[in-house]
Structures are given as C-alpha cells and as structure tokens.
C-alpha cells in the first residue's frame, strides 16, 4: 500500500495499542473486563474521526482515556509526537488539558445550575491564564458569537435552566473552545438533543473543523451522523476496533460482518422493513463477549470459521486508509469450516 499523503504530516494525536482493563470478580475468582483493547488510530489537523458502536463497546471509555480522566492499562498516547503517558504518568498537565478538551453527552448535567453561562466560559480562560480580567467579557462574547448564541451579552447573564438543550450544548462547545484546543472529544454530543436541533450542532462541528483546524473525535451510535460529519469512521465492538476507513467508502462497502450488521439495521425510509433481513444474531449472549482468545464477534457472526474461536484477527489493510480486523479478509483466508 502506498503511503497516503496525510501520513507524511505529523498527526495531532496518535494512539497506539491503548487498552483499559477493569478487574472484576473477587479474590478467588478473578476476572478481567477489557473495556478498551488494543486500540490504535491517528487523528490529523482539521479532521473528524467518528467512533461508532453499540452501547458498552468502549467508545466512551476511549474518550475518557484520551482526556486522561482515567489511566490506561497499557498503550501510548502521542500528542504532537510526544509520549504523554511517559511524560505525565500520574495526572495530565495543564498544557495537555488545554490542548485536549471534551464535550459530554448530557448538556443538562455538564453545566453548573448555580452559575450563569458567562462564568462557565470565563473559568477556563482564567485557569489557563489565557485572558486578562479586563478582556474576559469581550472574550466570552466572541466565544458565544462563534457558537451562534445571540446576543452574547444577554446570553452570558443567563443561567443554564433558562436555555434549551441545543443552546446548552453550544455553551459546552464554547467552553471547550475557550482554551483554543487542538482536539475536541465529543462524546455523543447530539443524542440528548431534539432531532430538529441536532443538525445545528453537527454543522457547528463541521465549521470549527474547517475554520480552526480542530481535530474531533466524534463518538456516536448513529451511523448516519457519523457519516455526515466524520471524514473517517472507526467501528468498535466489545472494546476492539473492528474496522476503520473513510466514512463514505466504509459505509458503501462494509467489510466486517459487524459493520454490515449495523448498517443493515439502520432504518431506511426508502425500503420497507422486510428487506432488512439480518443474518447475525441481534443478541448473542447476555454478557459482553470478553474472551482471552479469538474474535470477540465470533459468537454472533454469521460467517464464523473455526479459526475465529482460536485467534484474534490481525489488522488487514483493504485499501488506502481502510482497515478491518476479520479473518475473512486476511491475506491467506482459511476455508469456512
């Protein structure tokens, strides 16, 4: 495979073999839950990487690891080429937190009800010493303008309860923008919003990406919006990245059986319900598959082969920037059993 043009440029964020394992069970019956397992990806300037997967697939844990809200079990996080975990093993530095910001799912819970909107945006500016106190008001107004909240002077004095969900989510975005981050981790920013308002938030992400060159990690379970805003899409299943590629190409030609299942399940108004016959089991096991060996999707996979139970598939490259982890696509495919 030829090196893609973008590969030459240093990515803002590079994650290699990142894992987060939680210990379960007790002293005599120890068990490990692999919430995130061996995840690697790169995020470039001005790029949106969508992360999709069902609930419990480790999407949010991944964002929390990158935001350094919890420490990974193993793996490396490189920000502008610097190994962050080696330099700041215990706690993220102020500089790191300035560069990596996060937007949470619930705009009703992420703003303090006792402070006006202006306060929420002033605080990061003060903490990171990015504005002098005489400039604060002006900075806040500019930020509120950027996210489309008018008139800024009036909005800054309002309290969160006086605003709708969409407006609050935009305040959360303005707060993240205040410190001029390089990366914003958006954890399902639209799932709590009304359908008619979701598009505004997605278009704002698009605008910030092009105008400011911010890299976004957009976490969602909605494939259509992942395709709409994401340049690339990464599909996660049970903590593992099973497929990654350019959003449009990936959804056009999904290679992994799980991606195929997800895509077949999305309601499609142009066809009836009957056409979407799914081959894989919707719910294979009650517990998330978390075995030491083999492919995590094996128990639900319609194309299961004997090797799937034995060995975790490698990352196989299908085309430029399109990877899949499935034995079906490995160079020397074993015959179905």
């Amino acid at each position: 495979m030829s090196e893609h043009e973008q590969e030459a440029e240093l990515p803002i964020l590079e994650v290699t073999n990142l894992s987060k394992h939680f210990s379960l069970g007790n002293w005599w019956k120890p068990a490990i839950f692999k919430a995130v397992n061996d995840v690697s990806f790169k995020l470039h300037k001005g790029e949106v990487l969508s992360v999709v997967g069902e609930s419990g697939s480790g999407k949010s844990t991944l964002a929390r690891l990158i935001a350094r809200l919890s420490n990974p079990t193993e793996g490396r996080i490189l920000l502008h080429g610097k190994d962050i975990l080696a330099q700041e093993p215990r706690k993220a530095s102020l500089a790191y937190r300035r560069q990596v910001q996060m937007i949470f799912q619930d705009p009703f819970g992420s703003l303090s009800p006792t402070h006006p909107i202006g306060y929420h945006i002033e605080r990061p500016l003060q903490i990171h010493k990015l504005a002098q106190s005489k400039d604060l008001e002006r900075e806040v107004a500019t930020l509120l303008e950027t996210v489309g909240l008018h008139p800024p002077a009036d909005v800054a004095e309002r309290y969160p309860f006086q605003m709708s969900g969409g407006q609050r989510q935009r305040v959360a975005i303005a707060r993240a923008l205040a410190v001029q981050p390089d990366i914003i981790l958006a954890d399902e920013p639209t799932s709590m919003l009304d359908v008619s308002i979701r598009m505004e938030v997605l278009n704002l992400i698009e605008k910030l990406k092009t105008e400011r060159g911010i890299g976004f990690l957009y976490i969602t379970h909605d494939l259509a919006s992942a395709r709409y805003v994401g340049d690339r899409t990464m599909v996660m299943y049970a903590g593992n990245v099973v497929e990654e590629g350019e959003s449009c190409a990936l959804m056009e030609n999904p290679a992994h059986p799980y991606t195929q299942l997800l895509l077949a399940s999305v309601p499609d108004p142009s066809s009836g319900l009957s056409t979407g016959e799914t081959t894989a089991k919707a719910e294979g096991t009650r517990k998330p598959p978390n075995r030491d060996k083999g492919c995590p999707f094996a128990s639900r996979c319609p194309m299961r082969m004997s090797i799937c139970e034995e060995k975790m598939p490698r990352r196989t490259s299908l085309a430029a920037n399109h990877f899949v982890r499935c034995h079906l696509h490995e160079a020397d495919p074993p015959k179905p059993a």
Binding site: V195, R198, L202, A224, S225, E252
Partner: peptide
C-alpha cells in the same frame, strides 16, 4: 434533519 446513509454528502440544515 436526518442524514442519509447513502449517496453523496449534502449539507443539511435541520
């Protein structure tokens, strides 16, 4: 307000 899964990317307004 709903992004399509197929076809070219078009700008939606909501």
């Amino acid at each position: 307000s709903f992004a399509p899964l197929k076809g070219p990317k078009v700008k939606l307004t909501g």
